[in-house]
């Protein structure tokens, strides 16, 4: 008898025998309860998550660089989108270029001008209307033109009263329609609108949005490839393990789970890094923007990464990591049948 022979079989130890009440069920038992199944499912998820974290931590530099590559790819479109948001914010002041100036007849009185301003301000497509009297206009012109002394020599104020109208929308067609309607109002000599600026602003914003959209699509594909390739390498490294797991009864979802967690963790890491890169990058750029805006007499400054945008970035990165991992595992799982 060899040294490895076992003691005589005990009923409770019999292979295939029904387990004691305290034992968890096996496939041959009456069937596991819902609580047991839920606990088993949670335990499997916990184990997969811990295992994925352990494997990532085992290769900290490799994991970090994978996250960094993903973060750079994520921060490019997100950074451009944020810059575009800032340009749109800047567009509030650009919108002034879309203001319609109503030059009143030279003999129009203050009271007539105020009454007309109130009438215009009540219009649906008008955001704001401001009355600038002849005296105010002259005073501002004196201050801004540097011709103060020369203007004092004039016998009469040559400037008419003006109503400055800020429209609700910066849209070429709507603005032109509004301008024509305002030009028909009584005591209005001329209605002037600089449409070229409006068109340029609108075209630039549309171009920017389209560019960001295209870039986002390209980089999303690149990200899926990066994560897919990373997960493929993990699968290759664990080929034997996967084959053994399948042979001892592991389902496809059991095999897939740790890789999905890994993809999700890569996405989470990349999202956090991208958020950090953007926050730091916008802060760094803001100094130069503030200086430039100051030269134009503006107090414009770049807004940082809003919390909502940061969370969207994080969620998007996690989803991309998950989807990339899912695609990679789905692509390679069928090749991993035990041999």
């Amino acid at each position: 008898m060899s040294a490895t022979r076992m003691p005589p079989p005990q009923p409770a130890q019999r292979v295939g025998a029904a387990p004691k009440k305290s034992e968890s069920p096996t496939p041959g038992d009456d069937g596991p309860s819902f609580t047991h199944q839920l606990h088993a499912w949670l335990e499997n998820h916990r184990a997969s998550l811990v295992d994925s974290l352990r494997r990532l931590a085992k290769q900290p530099i490799g994991s970090f660089f994978t996250c960094l590559v993903m973060a750079v790819a994520l921060s490019l479109p997100m950074g451009l989108a944020l810059l575009l948001d800032n340009v749109e914010r800047l567009g509030v002041s650009w919108q002034r270029a879309a203001q319609i100036s109503l030059f009143m007849q030279i003999d129009a009185t203050d009271a007539q001008g105020q009454a007309l301003r109130e009438q215009i301000a009540a219009m649906d497509d008008v955001e704001e209307a401001e009355w600038i009297s002849r005296e105010q206009a002259l005073s501002e012109f004196q201050q801004q033109s540097g011709l103060g002394e020369a203007l004092k020599e004039l016998p009469d104020n040559p400037l008419p009263g003006v109503i400055v109208v800020t429209p609700q929308q910066v849209d070429k067609v709507a603005l032109e329609a509004l301008r024509l309607r305002l030009a028909e109002l009584p005591r209005v000599q001329q209605a002037q609108l600089d449409l070229l600026w409006v068109e340029r602003l609108s075209a630039m914003l549309k171009l920017g949005e389209r560019f960001v959209f295209g870039l986002t699509l390209l980089l999303v594909m690149a990200l899926l490839l990066v994560i897919g390739n990373t997960i493929r390498l993990h699968i290759e490294n664990r080929r034997t393990e996967i084959e053994v797991i399948k042979l001892v009864g592991g389902t496809d979802s059991y095999v897939r789970r740790p890789f999905l967690y890994m993809g999700t963790l890569y996405g989470l890491g990349a999202g956090l890094l991208a958020w950090l890169l953007l926050a730091y990058g916008l802060g760094w750029l803001n100094d130069a923007v503030v200086r430039l805006a100051g030269l134009y007499g503006s107090d414009f400054a770049l807004a940082g990464v809003p919390i909502a945008d940061g969370l969207s970035l994080l969620l998007g990165a996690v989803l991309l990591g998950y989807i990339g991992a899912w695609l990679a595992v789905a692509r390679h799982l069928s090749e991993l049948a035990p041999r």
């Binding site: 034992e23 968890s24 096996t26 496939p27 047991h36 199944q37 606990h39 088993a40 499912w41 335990e43 499997n44 184990a47 053994v244 797991i245 001892v248 009864g249 592991g250 059991y254």
Partner: peptide, 12 residues
């Protein structure tokens, strides 16, 4: 490994 796949508790 086979028991982890079955989802048994750590004690079990």
């Amino acid at each position: 490994l086979p028991l982890q796949i079955l989802g048994l508790s750590k004690d079990e």
